[in-house]
Design a protein around this nucleic acid. Structure first.
Lengths: 223, 223
DNA sequence: CCGGGCGCTGTGAACTGGCTGAGAACCTGT
DNA sequence: ACAGGTTCTCAGCCAGTTCACAGCGCCCGG
């Protein structure tokens, strides 16, 4: 379960990260408003913890922009301000919950879980490319209607590809986003791409020599 | 993709360079503030990694100067200091991101990519000249709509031409920018220009005898 | 019309990036 | 502790790529 923490105070950001990772989440950190927005945009996160006071773009702006773009990712806002007004503002902007700092980690975790639970009831739409279909709600992959068994890692890799069609993704990027720890050999990626090709056919993932991989040629698009 | 590393600690600078080159970047190093500023000024870099503590001119000064000169190059600051204050200062000066040393290479790379991505405005626009189109996002070249297979080197060369239309580029410049190592024969360039002509037609790249090459005569422009 | 370069290209040797099979390490549930 | 499945490393292979070389043709100045 992948989370994004947008928080400019480095110490706090890392404390949060440490705690959340201990509780089984993967956590990425963004230190500024714009970088947080950018990270949230590409849909890789189950939820976003968002500070209000941020350099570049306020938390309000970030969530407002996300909602304007129809991005439904759950957002939990954190603020040092304590006016009731601020809280209302935050929720009006489209945040799912709003906590006032200082807040104990346990309370935060509880709210986070609540937000996630609430959000899980609304089914995310299935991703597809040609004959391949991946349904995040059911956590299932089908090829031309027939279910295909996937290991967790294979599933995560395929999901990343499906979330970034129309673009080359580099091996290092995949290592960084699908595998959390970075000190791995990029050969790992090659191996898993090989697994996917074996299960889904050789054409789904295209190799772009020297650059990375890309979802299969547009010949299949539209099917 | 060309980067500038401004770092006075030679060992670290070279370690960075090695890592980044392994990930496909070209890397130049500047060891002092003033030389870093000078190098950054001529706009040859996609991004700048900038240490804060530098001889001659601090990282803050460098980025401030660049911004004062309306230079939009993405800057990622690196600092040994860990005060929140310092980070805020860095961002205030106009840096795009700010990391506190020690930082793992992977994290640095992730931030670097994020900065680059953000700066490219989510989707770098496709480059084109006449019938030739090169889409950096998809890493694909088409000629009158039909895809053309390119080797990495051919692709890099074509991209360089398309990024510098309206101007003669010398072979030495190409050797320096498309091929990293400088001790190559300029004949290599001629060979690759030949490859491109074979794939894209003889008129795309024009020879300027004694000077270098130039994108094909304006006859095709506007098509 | 001739000669000197400059630039072009065919050939082939060396290299490299990416793919794969094999198997070690690691979980996880029983 | 064990079995089954999963993850990841390693080493070798292969196709595709890169590049040097050498010879040729063509432009241009005399």
């Amino acid at each position: 379960m992948r989370l994004l923490v947008v928080e400019d105070e480095v110490r706090l950001a890392h404390a949060l990260r440490r705690g959340l990772m201990a509780d089984g989440f993967s956590v990425d950190i963004a230190l500024t408003g714009p970088s947080g927005l950018q990270a949230a945009r590409d849909g890789a996160y189950e939820a976003v913890l968002l500070d209000v006071m941020l350099p570049g773009l306020s938390g309000y702006d970030v969530v407002r922009t996300l909602r304007a773009e129809d991005n439904p990712v759950p957002v939990l806002m954190l603020s040092a301000k304590d006016g009731v007004h601020d809280q209302a503002d935050g929720l009006d902007c489209g945040a799912d919950d709003y906590l006032v700092k200082p807040v104990s980690y346990v309370v935060l975790l509880a709210h986070l879980r609540a937000v996630l639970r609430r959000h899980h009831d609304t089914r995310p739409p299935a991703l597809s490319w040609g004959d391949v279909r991946l349904d995040p709600a059911v956590h299932e992959v089908t090829l031309a209607g027939a279910p295909v068994a996937m290991t967790p890692r294979e599933y995560a890799l395929l999901e990343f590809f499906l979330r970034h069609p129309d673009r080359v993704v580099t091996k290092v990027e995949l290592l960084d986003r699908v595998w959390d720890l970075g000190d791995r050999d990029t050969n790992t990626v090659e191996v898993y791409v090989g697994y996917l090709r074996r299960k889904l056919g050789p054409d789904v993932i295209e190799t772009v020599r020297g650059a990375g991989y890309r979802l299969g040629g547009s010949a299949i698009v539209g099917t």
